[in-house]
């Protein structure tokens, strides 16, 4: 028998409370999505799947979802390529200019979203980019690049550059060296950068609200307008779906990641 330990009990309670506080807002959405009435009440008065049905059949909802998905994929590709190249360039410059460039690239993360949104909107108006694919991808890329630069930069900091020298001595030119030595070794950084970029774009709402158009809407904008117009439980259904997907992705990532980590 273990002796009763009041310290451990208090610790356990505190942890449980904090966990509840962190998780509750997310978990609460799940029962709300099965509501039978058109209200975001908790707890819901009955059970139905109609809000899920609405999400998949209502073109307003489903189109905004595919739009977000497409934009996020494009953003994650573009931001990862640019951000990776920038991170490598900064790492190799080793001068004060490199630090300045890094700061400049990271500013979108620090500047308040609304300020950035107003600026983007002003430029987009004159350039006719409001409510366009290009507009979304450009704006979201701007916001996603800092994440890639930071993730890849952290990986490059521990990358042994002498391996590139070794590759050169073995007959590999710069490009081959990059693809056969550098890239595989900074792949974890690039992958997490790409993931961050995807997520940044997928749930970006401030800038998107400014540059949206009735024809081309991203999911967060759709959620936001749905919330302000009519408190439709489809929002909860969408939230639950995203919650489920991200949990699965991160869970699989953890399992896969640890297994690989153990091997090396």
């Amino acid at each position: 028998m273990k002796r009763f330990n009041p310290g451990r009990l208090i610790l356990g309670l505190t942890v449980a409370l904090i966990a509840l506080w962190l998780l509750a807002p997310t978990i609460v959405v799940v029962p709300m999505s099965f509501a039978d009435k058109k209200s975001l009440a908790f707890p819901p008065s009955g059970f139905s799947l109609k809000w899920y049905e609405n999400f998949f059949t209502n073109p307003q909802w489903f189109n905004s979802f595919t739009t977000s998905l497409k934009v996020a994929v494009m953003v994650s590709v573009v931001a990862t390529v640019i951000g990776t190249m920038a991170a490598i360039g900064i790492e190799r410059m080793k001068s004060r200019t490199a630090g300045l460039i890094r700061m400049l690239l990271i500013t979108p993360m620090v500047v308040p979203g609304v300020v950035l949104a107003v600026g983007v909107y002003a430029v987009y108006l004159t350039q006719g980019l409001v409510g366009t694919w290009t507009g979304y991808v450009l704006a979201h890329t701007l916001l996603a690049i800092p994440f890639v630069v930071i993730a890849v930069g952290a990986n490059l900091a521990v990358f042994d550059q002498r391996l590139e020298t070794a590759a050169a001595s073995l007959g590999a030119n710069r490009l081959t060296t990059f693809f056969t030595v550098t890239l595989p070794l900074i792949r974890p950084g690039i992958l997490s950068g790409a993931l961050f970029a995807f997520v940044t774009s997928f749930d970006e709402v401030i800038v998107s609200l400014f540059i949206t158009s009735p024809q081309l809407k991203t999911l967060p904008v759709q959620i936001f307008s749905s919330m302000t117009r009519d408190a439709d439980p489809t929002v909860a259904a969408v939230g639950s779906l995203i919650f489920l997907t991200t949990t699965l992705v991160i869970g699989l990532g953890l399992i896969f990641g640890t297994r690989k980590g153990r091997k090396s």
């Binding site: 042994d160 002498r162 070794a166 050169a168 001595s169 590999a172 030119n173 060296t177 090396s264």
Partner: peptide, 18 residues
């Protein structure tokens, strides 16, 4: 350039591709 010199190099820190 180094990669065209056809010279073998062994480094103190091994420099094997991990």
């Amino acid at each position: 350039p180094a990669h065209k010199r056809n010279i073998g190099v062994v480094f103190q820190h091994y420099a094997l591709f991990p």
